[in-house]
Computed example of a mutant assay.
Amino acid sequence: MTSREDRVKEKLSCVHAMSEAHPPLIAVAGRQSVARESGPHRHAAGQLLGLFSGLMTVRTERGAWVLPTMRAVWIPPSHIHAARSHGPFAGWAAYIAPAECSALPDQPRVIDVSGLLREAVLTATEWGLDPFKASQRNVFAVILDEIAGSCADAFRLPMPSDARLLRIASALIDEPADSRTLEAWAKLAHAAPRTLSRRFVEETGLTFTAWRQGARLMRALERLAAGEPVTSIALELGYDNPSAFIALFKRTFGTTPGRYLAPDVPQFWRP
């Protein structure tokens, strides 16, 4: 009997060359016991990527997202992206043929995963590579409708294109606790503070302060996934106290740090 892992490998081998000979949707689910990283790459197919447990950072040319269990990232066909998990994870992916993506968002976005979308994708992971039956086409239509009708997640860290700003942004992603002032960063970038402030808003839609706050929250999510205590994370990232960090976290994500990464593993993976 073919194992679940073998079936996943067989499906993934078809993703890069999806054609009329394949179904318009290929869905897989699996888990990794160690962290995994994939460098910049692209698929001819559109990709919806979600998690049951763990945390993942996804970067595209538009910016970066941290992906928890209640959200999924949509990558349109041929968009370059990279992904990195923070420790072990369990997740799923749905690959959609380019011809079926015309009514779907044409830019990467993170969306909320409804119970309907999650169950539809899980159902599709059990399908083989044969042409769709009528019932499968109906489930596929649900997945397309859920993606098309989704709202983009508000929390994204957009990357600037200006070389000076990109140098600063990259440094803050590497070390978000860096507390240098805007004036100090401007001196490093050989730019006037007012120019730097204006260009940050023009290129990212965020003030420099808000952008740095976003970088800190992204790092906080990564450290939460590693099991670090909230108090340690808050103090190391420059917050005055854990309460200030928790309040900001809840305003941004709508839930507390402890609940944000709550796993939602399917029954067939539970002990």
Rank of each mutant, 00 (worst) to 15 (best):
A244T: 15
T256M: 10
P266D: 10
R251I: 08
V113S: 05
L55D: 11
Q136H: 04
A184W: 11
H86Q: 11
L196I: 06
D145Q: 15
P105S: 03
A124S: 06
A35L: 07
V8F: 12
S78V: 00
A94L: 04
A184Y: 11
L196G: 02
D153K: 00
E175C: 13
A94M: 06
H22D: 07
A152Q: 03
W65Y: 12
A35S: 10
G91V: 00
A171F: 10
S114K: 01
L12K: 00
E203K: 04
R109S: 10
A186L: 09
S3M: 04
E126Q: 15
I246D: 13
S243H: 13
S53V: 06
F249P: 02
Y260K: 09
G54A: 08
E61N: 05
R71T: 05
R7L: 14
A90F: 06
S232Q: 14
Y239D: 05
K133H: 13
W92D: 05
S78Y: 03
P160M: 03
W269T: 02
F132I: 14
V73G: 00
H43I: 01
V15S: 00
R194G: 10
A184T: 14
L49Q: 09
R62S: 14
T255F: 09
T57I: 11
W269F: 11
L12S: 04
F52Q: 07
V201I: 11
G87T: 05
H16Q: 12
L117H: 04
E146Q: 09
Q136I: 01
V110H: 03
E222F: 12
D178M: 09
R212T: 14
L117Y: 07
S135F: 12
P266Y: 11
E236Y: 07
A152M: 02
G214F: 12
C14N: 04
